[in-house]
Amino acid sequence: MSELLKVENLSVSFLSYAGEVRAVRDVSFHVDARETLALVGESGCGKTVTSKSIMRLLGRTTGVIQPGSHIYYKGEDILAMDKKRLSQIRGSEISMIFQDSMTSLNPTMTVGAQITENIRTHARVSRADALRRAEELLRMVEIPNPHERLRNYPHQLSGGMRQRAMIAIALAMDPSLLIADEPTTALDVTIQAQLLDLLRGLKDRLGMSIILVTHDLGIVSDFADRVQVMYAGRIVERGTVEEIFQNPRHPYTWALLRSIPGMAPDRKSRLYSLHGTPPDLLLPLEHCPFAARCEYCMPICKKQPPAETVLSDTHGAACWLLHPNAPRVEIPRGIGGVNRD
């Protein structure tokens, strides 16, 4: 099987004074080699926690990965690895880049040093060689004057440059999987596009998989192969990009799609916004988590959580509307493709 990463029954809780916040509830998915998976959802849905859990990067928080969770990387359970093996994997097999490049880079280390740090942690390489490789990487991420940039500090670079530098650090050891946690959120639109182009090019060239975590469905269509929509710690819909954009089946997905500016048929109409707020994750939520905000909520939605309805090999949605006994509901206007179900 070409499954690079397989997440099974991942549950993550945070212990707070108020109680246990269950941020990720029984999430399972997989990522194949050379494919891009997008994790989409609004703030607090659990996508970032999920992405951080993959490399067990919750150490500084009170987050605890619940027993019964498994994360298999090339067959090995990351959650069962010892510290040494984990360190080996981090940065060289799986890499991660973060949203805020200014704070995610050590302000007192040069860019070059931060790249070579990654290299020399994993390989016995001389400083000179490591620096050469670093320069190469900077060139690869299309930073002009890479040789000078090696000696620059993060604050001397623009936002876009910094993000590229982060990518260079992450790609230093040629990882098989790159986890990108909202890499373009802090950038303006034009830089966003440039960065995504870069990532796409690198992905093809280096043959790596990418997990892209984002709240912006707009950038996903061009970039990802598959999409997973998360809400309140659960995956509510999953599918290929075509399936999600042309045949979305979960009301939350509809709301997300309608929120994309420019998707509305009528230019004069107001920008759609989903009212309400995500539920309190302290609560057990033994029902559909979206019930409170769903236009199509039915009594059963408030009583039982829906199981995932398999719509195809790759497409699935967890919604009572897909139950045979449920009333037929039309996909709202303006979203979805020509082929409607």
Partner: peptide
């Protein structure tokens, strides 16, 4: 310790 770059360093597998 709560700064993001510490997380980055951890993500790099630094000891």
């Amino acid at each position: 310790v709560n700064q993001d770059y510490i997380l980055t360093a951890e993500a790099k597998g630094v000891s």
